[in-house]
Design a binder for these strands. Structure first.
Lengths: 131, 131
DNA sequence: TTTAATTAAGACTTTTTTATCTTAAATAAG
DNA sequence: CTTATTTAAGATAAAAAAGTCTTAATTAAA
């Protein structure tokens, strides 16, 4: 969100600067960003004037994608009771409700792009950190 | 869910028996049930023929109540980015979406009673455990 | 070509959560 | 009244998650 709210697709933003602006530990942020780079959402450059930048156009990156990368690809595949093989064949008592809820969540998160969030953050001066 | 699916409101069901049926550690289950007893959803009895039973009628207990008791009363009050004081006055970029999603979740969970789940589990022979 | 700046990767530490164990208290039955 | 059975509560242990640190690799600029 920080990156896209800058609205400069070309340049690299250093993680150090980002961590200081957002008041997040540098090492923590570095680690958090790595899977995004590995999955091709971001591209990184080492050395002076290095940092991270979007590889994939933020218009094409949904919140859903980010959530799946950061939380794990089967984040929306779990049974509410934690049962193995819970599905239409052998459902748990809340399988139906939970499926409905999950599909609403997935639909919603899939409909929001990072570009939309960036624009909103930029134009409405919204905050990404405390204070 | 186990308790209500038994559809015998009067008698106490022992936690030992329940833990064996559901294949959950006895001590773990005991601990999990304690907040429900403390909050007046269940009533317990020690000694021979003791166990737990519903105090509040399961028709009047919603999934929402159970979730709030087990996960904490402010389970649905968090900011998606973890910001303090995120609200209409000083929202984060995803405040609106997140609010919408949370209200759908709360509405859904509030509309489901344990009695409904128990009936469904009983009549459709649904499972509460693996295998 | 050397140096400073920067991310990557993995080891390590700390914190939090989850799970278990022990002891105490209560209760029904003999 | 004593004993066996059962939950309650708190202490302890184990596992998982979160966070930090160190070293390596890369890159641009002097």
């Amino acid at each position: 969100m920080y990156l896209v709210s800058k609205r400069e697709k070309q340049r690299y933003f250093s993680i150090r600067e980002m961590s200081e602006t957002l008041d997040i530990s540098f090492h923590f942020l570095t680690k958090a960003l790595q899977p995004l780079t590995q999955k091709g959402i971001l591209v990184s450059s080492r050395g002076p004037a290095g940092g991270v930048s979007f590889l994939k156009a933020p218009e094409e990156v949904t919140l859903m994608e980010i959530i799946l990368i950061l939380e794990g690809e089967d984040f929306f595949n779990s049974c509410m009771l934690g049962l193995d093989g819970c599905g239409l064949q052998r459902p748990c008592p809340v399988h139906g409700v939970w499926m409905d809820i999950k599909s609403i969540l997935m639909k919603e998160f899939s409909s929001i792009s990072l570009a939309m969030i960036g624009d909103k953050t930029f134009t409405q001066h919204l905050r990404l950190m405390n204070v």
